Simulated scan of single mutants.
Amino acid sequence: MMMDPFERIESTLFVVTYGRSGSTLLQNLLNALPGYMLRGENANLLRGLVQSWQGLRQSEQGANMRLVGQPSGPHQPWYGYEAIEADQLGRDLAQVFMRTVLRPEADTRVIGFKEIRWHEDPALFEPTLEFLQRYMPRARFIFNTRDHAEVCRSGWWKTMEPAAVRQELEQAQALYSKWQAAHPESCLALHYNDYISGPEAWRGLFDFLGKPFDPELVQATLDRKLMHMK
């Protein structure tokens, strides 16, 4: 019988970033570490799951549901709703996400993904990270950023109004900084313009992960051409 992923995963890791930030390079390095599997973007699939969990949690807090704590009967419009538990829903949704989206392999010990859309719904940013922190095994977050002027000139961003791009990036940065300040023990901030300089700049990442620093592995990752950049 195959062991449940939650029973063998030691920790989970999530790269929080925006597009054209160098996050695929970071993803490649993490996937080069033994036992690590960092999936790519998933179009922010968590959004719908977190909305369901957050909506039920707000109902439990009395925001939308007047029957919480009271037994309901089959004659009432919210029949049975008071028995639904937000915490149980959160745990179940996290397990479904682990099994069907992250899909750790037999030798995976650290699993996660990188996503560039975390900031697109600011009201859901903190609930999403809280969901992961509550229900994923030992969740940690890497906030990956890049010089905003460079981002504005890269990829699809350069087809957009520069002022709008800067505003979006600054908003994302503010969300990142607020979460990091509140949860310093589980967060690491990385900046593309720093770590592209060479292996030594990656030492802090290895310290954060509790791994011995491997400059040769870093250099091999830096030397590998990214297919999506062609």
Score class of each variant (00 low, 15 high):
residue 21 S to E: 01
residue 187 C to L: 02
residue 93 L to R: 00
residue 103 R to M: 13
residue 4 D to E: 07
residue 16 V to M: 05
residue 168 E to W: 07
residue 40 G to N: 07
residue 173 Q to Y: 12
residue 150 E to G: 07
residue 178 K to P: 06
residue 5 P to N: 02
residue 40 G to A: 10
residue 9 I to K: 06
residue 214 D to N: 00
residue 78 W to N: 03
residue 96 V to S: 07
residue 184 P to D: 10
residue 165 V to A: 04
residue 34 P to V: 10
residue 9 I to T: 07
residue 45 L to I: 08
residue 33 L to C: 00
residue 196 I to C: 06
residue 100 T to G: 11
residue 98 M to R: 13
residue 62 G to T: 09
residue 25 L to C: 09
residue 26 L to Q: 00
residue 194 D to C: 02
residue 74 P to C: 05
residue 170 E to A: 13
residue 4 D to I: 08
residue 52 S to N: 08
residue 199 P to K: 12
residue 21 S to M: 05
residue 212 P to Q: 15
residue 166 R to Y: 14
residue 54 Q to W: 10
residue 125 F to T: 03
residue 179 W to A: 10
residue 116 I to P: 09
residue 53 W to E: 05
residue 28 N to P: 00
residue 205 L to A: 02
residue 72 S to I: 03
residue 19 G to E: 04
residue 159 T to L: 04
residue 120 E to K: 01
residue 27 Q to E: 12
residue 147 D to E: 12
residue 92 D to N: 15
residue 136 M to T: 02
residue 169 L to Q: 02
residue 10 E to L: 04
residue 146 R to G: 07
residue 92 D to E: 15
residue 228 H to F: 14
residue 5 P to Y: 06
residue 27 Q to T: 14
residue 156 W to V: 09
residue 190 L to S: 02
residue 175 L to N: 00
residue 63 A to G: 01
residue 64 N to W: 10
residue 21 S to T: 01
residue 106 A to Y: 11
residue 96 V to I: 04
residue 66 R to P: 12
residue 186 S to T: 15
residue 110 V to T: 04
residue 20 R to Y: 14
residue 130 E to F: 14
residue 117 R to M: 10
residue 180 Q to T: 15
residue 173 Q to L: 13
residue 128 T to D: 05
residue 44 N to L: 09
residue 201 A to Y: 03
residue 25 L to Y: 05
residue 103 R to T: 13
residue 43 A to V: 02
residue 123 A to Y: 07
residue 127 P to D: 01
residue 227 M to R: 13
residue 138 R to W: 03
residue 189 A to T: 05
residue 227 M to N: 14
residue 221 T to S: 04
residue 113 F to M: 13
residue 156 W to Y: 15
residue 192 Y to F: 15
residue 129 L to G: 09
residue 178 K to Q: 03
residue 170 E to G: 06
residue 211 K to R: 05
residue 68 V to F: 04
residue 27 Q to N: 15
residue 180 Q to Y: 09
residue 160 M to G: 01
residue 90 G to S: 07
residue 148 H to W: 08
residue 76 Q to F: 03
residue 12 T to V: 11
residue 140 R to Q: 08
residue 149 A to H: 08
residue 171 Q to M: 14
residue 5 P to T: 00
residue 75 H to T: 12
residue 83 A to H: 07
residue 167 Q to K: 12
residue 41 E to Y: 02
residue 143 F to C: 08
residue 65 M to P: 05
residue 213 F to A: 02
residue 40 G to E: 07
residue 207 D to K: 11
residue 224 R to K: 15
residue 38 L to A: 03
residue 105 E to L: 15
residue 28 N to S: 10
residue 225 K to S: 01
residue 66 R to S: 06
residue 60 E to W: 04
residue 204 G to S: 06
residue 91 R to P: 11
residue 128 T to N: 01
residue 219 Q to P: 07
residue 179 W to T: 05
residue 190 L to Q: 01
residue 47 R to M: 03
residue 54 Q to E: 08
residue 71 P to Q: 09
residue 88 Q to E: 06
residue 178 K to W: 08
residue 214 D to W: 09
residue 206 F to T: 11
residue 59 S to L: 09
